[in-house]
Amino acid sequence: MKIDLDVEVLADNNTAASYNRDLFEKNKTLVINLMSSPGAGKTTLLEKTVARLGKEYRIGVIEGDLATEKDADRIRAFGAQAVQINTNGGCHLDARMVAKVLPEFDFDDIDLLFIENVGNLVCPSGYDLGQNHKVAILSVPEGNDKIPKYPVMFRRTEMVVLNKIDLLPYLDFDVKMAMEDLLGINPQSRLIQVSSRTGEGLDEWLSWIKQAYKQNVER
């Protein structure tokens, strides 16, 4: 017997994502899903973000990694609530994994929740986690050709944070080309330039978060 299912492969993930989204919305928590390749600087950007916004906002972080508690420890050192998810080899976070750790947070006490996805430019792009915003982080040493090479990631994110711009004078990263490629792949996205190490450009990143938080609360 033939059964026409006609169902999205990620249907179960999407159900879990809706559950997460309802919880976030009820608590007016702004949730940002950060994705990048390994070593682009997600955790360092988060450390700086928590250090700079920690007085004004109550911050939670979900750290996704294949193994170890190292990243959550780094974030906790800056005073945010952090929960580590170890995927045990899995290449991405899915909405069910996120749903499972949400009870560990006290949502009455969180304004901003950052989800640091597993370092990978392919798999995480397909999974809705229930977040308000998806942001890609790209770093100067990776080269500007990452944008056309991983179009799905850059199509499905609304902002690219170009990190490690303090290295621009020493490397061949073509910022203009990166912006043109991004426009060609996703005209709704934008690219902002930061260096987590020197602090350059961080104000633009932080004011985007503040604005997004405000819009989410007033919505």
Partner: peptide
């Protein structure tokens, strides 16, 4: 990315 059908 869909499951269109199956036969069983």
């Amino acid at each position: 990315f869909k499951v269109q059908s199956y036969e069983g």
